[in-house]
Nucleic acid binder design. Sequence first.
DNA 1: CTCCAAAGATGTAGTAACTACAAGATTGGA
DNA 2: TCCAATCTTGTAGTTACTACATCTTTGGAG
Lengths: 204, 204
Amino acid sequence: MEIGRRERKKQQTRQVISDVATRLFLERGFDAVTVAEVAKAADVAVQTVFNHFPTKEDLFFDETGWWLGPAEAIRNAPPEQNPIDTLEQQYLAVVRGRLANGHLETWREFSRTMAESQALLARRRQIAEEMERTLAAALQERDPEMEPLTARLVAAQFAAAQKVLEDELARIMPAEARPEQLTAANAELERATGKVFAALRRAW
Amino acid sequence: MEIGRRERKKQQTRQVISDVATRLFLERGFDAVTVAEVAKAADVAVQTVFNHFPTKEDLFFDETGWWLGPAEAIRNAPPEQNPIDTLEQQYLAVVRGRLANGHLETWREFSRTMAESQALLARRRQIAEEMERTLAAALQERDPEMEPLTARLVAAQFAAAQKVLEDELARIMPAEARPEQLTAANAELERATGKVFAALRRAW
DNA sequence: CTCCAAAGATGTAGTAACTACAAGATTGGA
DNA sequence: TCCAATCTTGTAGTTACTACATCTTTGGAG
């Protein structure tokens, strides 16, 4: 009822823009590429880009959507499971997905590009904050007994932990990717993750 | 050796710009005031504003400098004191200073103005991140035995806690300011602070 | 006191991300 | 077939910020 040719073409235009933009950003860096260049490369008007994406940053973070994961995991978790356990499992699943063959290199490029742009780092902070809010809401929805302050605190501490682990991951993984080093890095990462979530568990 | 008339005039110009900007921002909101207007009101060229302040946001956050507090507190703390205790004391001191007579209204205006501008909120996140980094460095400098990951984690969790408390403070304090409510709000705040830092202590 | 060099203030020109809006092109459906 | 909704485009602005040349003030050497 809504997927006529018109809508399809619209989505197609959007996809082309997003793909072209991503490619250019990864190739030359976010700050070095202008929206006008993206538009030209995608063969559309600059206005069309802004019709589909409110800001330049949205071109980069399009379709990643990871900020809903933790809240959804909490909502879908089995009734009696400890929230921290749920969050740890979800986090590990995400990270393992990233490190799986075929995704690793993509993730690295994303990570590197992001680290090189203040604008993208700022946007990541904003997204993390939104993730934190939705997580706090999910936690409280899940357990209405929980004090709002507590829910916000747990969410904030999880967000903080996640950030530290992200940085750690970015520090460990870019170093040469030969298999034996990769498994070592993997072990190191699991250790760090365990430590971080252990602290979280102790706190609550 | 460096405080001749020239330097004095320079600092004076800077101060005028900063004051005028702050006043305008508080009066009309950060986004509604342009740098050109600030320059005009301060009777200087637009360029001069940018000579003294790299970005518009720096005009707002000038001379607040709170992001060094925690790290300095750690560096200056008595040798055997628990870092979490140090941080709690420092935080309480800062908050009490803000709530002291004469500072409360100023803080409220700052807080409100900041909350109404995405640009300022983004900058606050960036500053918080810098605070976190300097704190992590101070923690590790203080106790070289500490694993870097641990130092980063403690700093991150403190930053997260601080953020939650800031939001809580902003939520509690704007409500009517009559003395009896103020003491009630104060008690509520102390309770929240105690709870937050207790969790931090449990974690480490 | 004079005058020069450095440093601060100014003005001009330009870039890039957006916004508002009017006008053109395409498409779904009557 | 044709109209109306919707997507796309082009034009004209606004604003933060940069580069750079020029003007003005000032501290200090002679």
